[in-house]
Nucleic acid binder design. Structure first.
Length: 472
RNA sequence: GGCGGCAUAGCCAAGUGGUAAGGCAGCGGUCUGCAAAACCGUUAUUCUCCGGUUCAAAUCCGGAUGCCGCCUCCA
């Protein structure tokens, strides 16, 4: 079984061959913790969570690192506005981030280092770069010299000459080249700082990822991930400073996820259309958010809107309904079945979860048909269905779905949508059940109509009447 | 100005040379007292448009149009 990954560095799908066979070392850029996490953060986190889950299912050992950027201009600014320390602000949003991602059933990386916990690693790296003449000191600031690194621009596909034509570079006479970037920034009065050989200051943005990835994964590792927007300048600069310092290849495969748009517009604070995870998980089943996020290929843009979210909830309901029907068929723990095999073929092709989810729904239709057609099964059929049950659960384990039993899911939905009138509803339901017993269809339908107006959906099953809240 | 991406049904979305997955919505049917759920059938003779290569193109090449991203903090 071989996995192919699209590598942003080569712009091709490549066979995945980790440095150490059977071991995946992966570093993903985490959030700058100065505000609540939004759906865009969720996409990146969920996509790489899926990668890790899949690698593990394929029997790889995975070392997964995701950082928190807990010191930068925005954090300083925000902390000042709130009159709290940068540490307090960062911790507040680290906690918020973890809460949100836990709600989305995201597994924690093996390490979640903070930039400020690795100041000495960062200083050491900057010193190496100065020694090797890739960086220079000006008034307590340290800059990386882009012209000292011949491969600069490789990842993002740009040339320094072309970029110079662009107007949007700040003019700073002290820099040797306008594209030289800060490795270390001297502290202005009132700013938080750490002592360094160049005076009081703090790390630049890019250097922390180089330092932390090296600390935990070594100088060369397998996968470096993040949002597409990080390709330039962040990842370009990371490569430059890491390769310049180590004189060894940095990450082998660069994986970048696409953006989430909101109603066909870019999500941004200025447009005021930022969708926060904490709001979303109140409104929708968290797994529906995952399903939506994974229903498009990870490199494609996703348009997030109410309709898309609604579709995802419908899909998730269908999957859980099927799982409930499958409960009598205890999942077999034998070899993986055809469904799992097909799932893997899609996932092996650059993690095509969109196609893979198609197979999941194929399987659901198949088992629904089987269960509709017959009430009793011979041993062979039973085994077949149990196998599909096992495969569906295994797929769910990779996509991060089905963390609940169907009953728990229904219950959670109920609680989420409940408007505190459950008792009144139960009473109407009981009355309707009696009316149906009496074959008083007019009364039964009248009650159903009344419940529909209250947002209640009724299902009269062979084993009794059920009701649930309809999605808003 | 430089670099890159995308265009597939009412909506969402796979498919990168062999004759259009899947989801949501709709319609017809089975089931049901009637519904709901589920299932069956149906919904793109065609993949933005125009050329080219090929026995064969949604897929490759050239061109046009439209949309979007990055180049500034950004997942």
């Amino acid at each position: 079984m071989s996995i192919h990954i699209y590598n942003s560095l080569t712009r091709k799908k490549e066979l995945f061959e980790p440095y150490t066979p059977g071991h995946v070392q992966m570093y993903v850029c985490g959030p700058t913790v100065y505000d609540d996490a939004h759906i865009g953060h969720a996409r990146s986190v969920v996509v790489f969570d899926m990668l890790v889950r899949y690698f593990k299912k394929c029997d790889y050992t995975v070392t997964y690192i995701r950082n928190f950027t807990d010191i930068d201009d925005k954090i300083i600014q925000r902390a000042r506005a709130l009159n709290i320390t940068t540490e307090a602000l960062a911790q507040k949003y680290i906690d918020a981030f973890n809460r949100d991602m836990d709600a989305l059933f995201v597994r924690h990386p093996d390490k979640e280092p903070k930039a400020t916990s690795h100041i000495s690693d960062i200083i050491e790296l900057v010193e190496t770069l100065i020694q090797k003449k890739h960086a220079y000191v000006v008034d307590g600031d340290v800059y990386f010299s882009v012209t000292s690194f011949t491969d600069y621009g490789h990842l993002s596909g740009r040339k320094l000459e072309d970029m110079a034509a662009g107007a949007r570079v700040d003019i700073d006479e002290r820099k040797h080249n306008p594209h030289d970037f800060a490795l270390w920034k001297s502290a202005k009065p009132g700013e938080p700082f750490w002592e360094s050989p160049w005076g009081k200051g703090r790390p630049g943005w890019h250097i922390e990822c180089s330092a932390m990835s090296m600390t935990f994964l070594g100088q060369s590792f397998d996968i470096h991930g993040g949002g597409k927007d990080l390709i330039f300048p962040h990842h370009e600069n990371e490569i430059a400073q890491s390769v310049a310092a180590n004189e060894k290849p940095y990450a082998k495969y660069w994986v970048h996820n696409g953006f989430v748009n909101i109603d066909r517009e870019k999500m941004s604070k200025s447009l005021g259309n930022v969708v926060l995870i904490k709001d979303l998980v109140d409104q929708y089943p968290p797994e529906a958010i995952r399903l939506l996020l994974l229903s498009s290929h990870y490199r494609s843009p996703i348009d997030f809107n109410e309709q898309a979210m609604h579709d995802a909830v419908s899909g998730l309901n269908k999957l859980y309904a099927a799982l409930e029907r499958l409960e009598p068929f205890t999942p077999s723990d034998t070899e993986a079945g055809d469904l799992w095999q097909r799932f893997c073929v899609s996932m092996n092709d650059d993690f095509n979860s969109a196609q893979a989810i198609g197979f999941l729904f194929d399987a659901v239709r198949y088992i629904n048909r089987c269960l509709d057609e017959s009430a009793s099964f011979n041993e062979k059929d039973t085994q077949n269905i149990a196998q599909i049950h096992a495969d569906i659960l295994k797929i769910g384990d990779v996509l991060g779905l089905f963390h609940q039993t169907p009953a728990e899911y229904a219950d959670t939905q109920q609680k989420r949508l409940s408007k505190g009138q459950d008792a009144a509803i139960e009473q109407l339901i009981a009355e309707r059940i009696q009316a149906r017993k009496d074959k008083n269809w007019a009364r039964a339908d009248e009650i159903r109509s009344q419940l529909t107006d209250m947002g209640i959906m009724i299902e009269d099953r062979a084993d009794g009447t059920r009701w649930k809240y309809m999605e808003a």
